[in-house]
Amino acid sequence: MNHWQVVSGVVQQGHQIASGWASDSPYPKGSIAMQMPYFRALGLDLFDLFQGTLNISIHPATFVMQQPTYTFPKVAWTVAHPPETFSFLPCQIVFQSYAYQAFVYYPHPETKQRHFQNADILELLAPPIARINYGDRVELALNPAEILIVNPDEG
Rank of each mutant, 00 (worst) to 15 (best):
W4T: 13
Q5G: 03
V6K: 08
V6M: 12
S8Y: 13
S8I: 13
G9D: 10
V11R: 11
G14Y: 12
Q16D: 15
I17R: 06
S19D: 12
S19K: 01
W21Y: 13
W21M: 11
D24K: 00
S25I: 11
K29D: 10
G30T: 02
S31R: 02
S31V: 10
I32K: 05
I32H: 06
Q35T: 12
M36Y: 06
M36H: 04
P37T: 12
Y38D: 07
R40Q: 02
A41Y: 04
A41W: 10
A41K: 14
L42E: 07
G43A: 01
D45L: 01
L46R: 02
D48V: 04
G52Q: 05
T53W: 08
L54S: 12
S57H: 12
V64N: 07
M65G: 07
Q66T: 05
Q67V: 02
Y70M: 02
T71A: 00
F72S: 06
P73C: 01
A76W: 00
W77P: 02
V79W: 00
P82H: 08
E84D: 04
S87I: 01
F88G: 05
F88R: 02
F88L: 07
L89F: 04
F95P: 08
Q96T: 07
Y100N: 09
A102F: 05
A102G: 10
V104P: 09
V104F: 07
Y105L: 05
Y106Q: 02
P107Y: 04
P107E: 06
E110N: 14
R114N: 15
F116T: 14
Q117P: 09
I121C: 15
I121P: 05
E123D: 11
P127R: 14
P127V: 15
A130G: 10
A130R: 04
R131Q: 08
N133D: 15
G135C: 03
D136V: 06
D136Q: 12
R137Q: 14
E139C: 03
E139W: 04
A141K: 10
N143A: 01
P144I: 01
A145V: 01
I147K: 02
V150D: 09
N151L: 09
N151C: 14
N151S: 15
P152R: 09
E154F: 13
